[in-house]
Design a protein around this nucleic acid. Structure first.
Lengths: 329, 329
DNA sequence: GGTCTCGATTGAAACGTTTTAGAAGCTTCT
DNA sequence: AGAAGCTTCTAAAACGTTTCAATCGAGACC
């Protein structure tokens, strides 16, 4: 039970606690010789600063929160990796929360983050309601939206243009000769799903789009959507899935029923996760700069935290990119 | 900047701060009527407990650390999901660290966790050295090993039998008629890789095993391993990959060169990640109870934290399971 | 009526840092 | 020689909780 505190270090080095604190936080304020002495004592006693005491007194922590919708989705894993890398470089710790698409779980998680007095929060909101985030901001917790454009100019956000993505996907299917197109999507309360549908509609210029809405965006849900389409008897020419997990499930479901992809039905996914290229029929998809999304969001947040004076809020919008593979050839 | 503290709540409810604290931490110690009054004040003022102050005074936090080797690997994502679910249920927050297989990054991350005064740490160590973990334990931080059997009886661990897994994998390849088998692995400093090789050796009973050691366990590395095998000219009958990411890369590499799987080369992976079933040739693999691994580890850790008196250290070992698919038929 | 016990509540002292005002020691300037 | 201005360091007061001994009332018992 070593209790090596700043006090013991001070005593060991023959200085006052305040000086040790200065060595830790403003090394330039202390003369080289005493600084060396203090640093030696720190090493010798194995001193580790007590983060909570520090946070309590200083009024702010060195921890940020990351709230994602589905940690099982490689899309969010990549985002997380980007966030982690930036935070770790700057000496911040990341608290990870998974809202699993549930609004109430998200609120509970945000409460925990508020209790921890995180410096800021990166969040992919599960819906559009601003109140929970406003409540954080009232508490002085900075918020940056991830994969969600900000509705207001006084906050940072990083997103990818989903309307363009949806439009690109469906335009590609149309150029391949498809006429009867189905859109398999997660809950239409999700902005991503809505925007991608809007893009699809734009590409269709008024022609109809079959919409199959599933409660989740997982391979399992994708397979169920396939079964649903099959049971209706009348298969579309092409299927646009709102993410690759749905698409992989759809692919499995179709193949299982003997439907050939792309010969009988063309298939396109979204996100271009690593596994899209390795599936039974390699998957055409819409690529997003995922890791970069996480990095950029974290950089924005930490800039907001560390330079509150000079920080300018930005709403960054990346552009998606079509990656053609076998499933639409 | 609402500063609603325990003090304001006390004043608002007409009690002392100590009573509010009791309502928060030992509700049974306070009479129903005052409890209701205090709870009303808490809601009305929007009070959120200051975690750092609480941690500082109480001497322990309500946060645990999770240190994994590769957050990009679905295996660890599933583990993380299990941990997250348990922790969140019990009101704990999870700080996620990714060591990316680097010992120095792991040590830096553990230092951050020590500073945060986490209650405990779940860790998949990147190597076998016990010192960093002992240092945590000296500080009163509980440690549970994940996917790594404990070498000592005074600590908890949760693992899956990798020797049996390796043996099962290679026995399956042998039973399919393979004689010349290659083992494609990550760094042999990793226990998992070593144990799986040992199991392979046991199944081979002295017959030789080609070992291809790659610096990482990613699809890219798998593809490079394929290129290496192809450039040597003399392909094995079967390839056993130390995880599914390597196997998916291997599959892609082989197919790219026109090698048929399983006709020319049989292929088996490890972990049975979701995507193994959906790949170009569905992948035979060794399934591990991944989510359960995370849940169990978290439960063990929180039991150790919350009931230090009655807690009995356990070394839990799950058994892996063969899942046969196209790649070895 | 006095003493005891018991439950509910209070008051004040921690917890380990950071921060601020200011003391102490030097150098430089007048 | 004294004032002024630095630099370097110290002492003590916070930060918002939890905890523990002490207090207060209200029944119960003799």
């Amino acid at each position: 039970m070593s209790a090596a505190g700043i006090r013991q270090v001070a005593e060991h080095a023959g200085v006052s606690p305040g000086t040790v604190s200065n060595v830790l936080n403003r090394p330039e304020k202390v003369s080289p010789s005493t600084r060396a002495r203090v640093e030696a004592s720190i090493r010798e006693l194995g001193f580790v600063r007590h983060g909570s005491a520090s946070t309590l007194r200083a009024g702010h922590s060195t921890t940020i929160g990351l709230s994602v919708i589905d940690i099982g989705n490689p899309f969010f894993t990549d985002v997380t990796a980007g966030v982690e890398d930036v935070a770790s470089d700057r000496g911040y710790a990341v608290i990870l929360s998974n809202s699993a698409g549930s609004r109430s779980k998200e609120e509970r998680n945000l409460l925990v983050l508020a209790e921890q007095r995180v410096r800021g929060v990166l969040i992919t909101p599960s819906d559009d309601s601003p109140e929970p985030l406003d409540r954080l901001r009232e508490r002085g917790i900075h918020v940056v939206l991830v994969d969600h454009p900000a509705h207001r100019p006084d906050q940072c956000s990083v997103a990818v243009n989903d309307v363009v993505g949806g439009q690109t996907a469906v335009a590609h299917l149309l150029s391949g000769g498809a006429r009867d197109i189905a859109y398999v999507t997660g809950p239409l309360t999700m902005r991503q799903c809505l925007d991608r549908r809007a893009g699809a509609g734009r590409a269709l210029r008024g022609r109809p789009l079959r919409v199959v809405e599933m409660p989740a965006m997982t391979p399992r849900a994708g397979q169920q959507a396939a079964e649903k389409l099959l049971s209706e008897g009348d298969l579309p020419d092409a299927v646009f899935c709102a993410n690759d997990l749905l698409a992989l499930g759809m692919l499995r479901g179709l193949m299982h029923a003997g439907v050939r992809v792309p010969d009988d039905v063309a298939l396109i996914g979204y996100d271009d996760i690593d596994f899209a290229a390795a599936s039974a029929v390699s998957l055409t998809s819409i690529r997003q700069p995922t890791y970069q999304l996480g990095r950029t969001a974290a950089e924005l947040l930490l800039d907001e935290c560390d330079n509150p004076g000079t920080h300018a809020h930005q709403q960054i919008m990346f552009q998606p990119e079509l990656v053609v593979r076998e499933s639409t050839r």
